[in-house]
């Protein structure tokens, strides 16, 4: 069942398409101009200097990381449990819950932003970390529910039954049998939830003003002004970090196996 050479080429071509914009971001980050462009008269590191020398940019990165990590933790916990619950129910009610969980993805964010603004006014949560984290956590849950549900679709329910029959408690079964089985789904859900928070702009533009200034807001500010290339420098660094982490992970696995 190995893919043919053609299939494999198409697959790799798609991967190339995926990384194509990345290859452009690095040279753009070295532009000598004050706007997004390829370097013209020479390369310059001024946008990196600007990034690392500016308390504003660093502060925004810190804020986004903090908000993203906490929000993801909440999304993953609630979302995974919910998906498992629906899977166990395997009834109309479970399906209804899953369908409901999809709503946050489909409703245009701006509409929700309007609603949450009113709500946060009442609860005095405007422009606070708690307010932003809660919103990002809740809107991140759907990603986790979807990916975990898909993973559960391929999970053999009899394994769980077997574990219970052998005397494992419900919690033990969940931790030792179900979770390891659906781990890829949980991990990809966590990735999506984090990226969702890390990249979210529309709601933050509404519910944050002076205290919370996340990275997307900072980038947006620079885009409106003059397509500030500092955002290309940020992207380059994020990509480099991710690549290094993934390569390290790869090496460690190799050592373990070899």
């Amino acid at each position: 069942m190995n893919p043919t050479r053609l299939t494999r080429s198409v697959g790799w071509a798609v991967i190339c398409f995926l990384v194509l914009p990345i290859t452009i971001v690095f040279p753009v980050s070295l532009t000598d101009k004050r706007y997004l462009s390829l370097p013209e008269e020479g390369i310059s590191f001024k946008h990196y200097v600007n990034l690392f020398g500016s308390a504003e940019w660093l502060g925004s990165i810190g804020q986004s990381l903090y908000i993203g990590v906490v929000a993801t933790a909440i999304s993953v916990t609630a979302g995974t449990l919910c998906a498992i619950g629906c899977w166990r129910l395997s009834s109309r009610a479970g399906e209804a819950v899953r369908a409901m969980m999809l709503v946050p993805i489909v409703v245009p964010t701006i509409v929700y932003a309007l609603g949450i603004y009113r709500f946060w006014v009442d609860l005095r949560l405007l422009d606070t970390y708690t307010g932003v984290i809660l919103v990002h956590a809740v809107t991140g849950i759907p990603y986790v529910v979807v990916t975990v549900s898909t993973a559960l679709a391929g999970f053999d329910a009899r394994l769980e039954q077997a574990a219970r029959n052998l005397g494992a408690s419900a919690f033990q079964t969940l931790r030792r049998v179900v979770l390891p089985g659906i781990l890829p789904g949980v991990v990809s859900g966590a990735i999506f939830a984090f990226i969702h928070s890390w990249d979210e702009l529309v709601i933050v533009l509404f519910i944050a003003s002076r205290a919370v200034f996340t990275l997307p807001r900072r980038i947006w500010d620079g885009i409106n002004e003059h397509l500030d290339p500092t955002m290309a420098a940020v992207a380059t660094i994020m990509i480099a970090l991710t690549a290094v982490l993934l390569v390290l992970d790869l090496r460690m696995r190799r050592r373990k196996e070899g």
Binding site: G11, W12, I15, C16, L18, V19, P21, I22, I24, V25, V28, L36, S37, L38, I191, I195, W198, D199, L201, L215, P216, I219, W220, I223, L227, M231, A232, V234, A235, M238, I239, L241, T242, A243, L246, V247
Partner: peptide, 22 residues
């Protein structure tokens, strides 16, 4: 391949759009 799939996720949707423009 996974690297290729995951890396673009780290580019803000704004940055990606402008990369496509370029």
């Amino acid at each position: 391949m996974m690297l290729g799939v995951l890396l673009p996720l780290w580019m803000s949707v704004l940055v990606r759009a402008f990369a496509w423009v370029t």
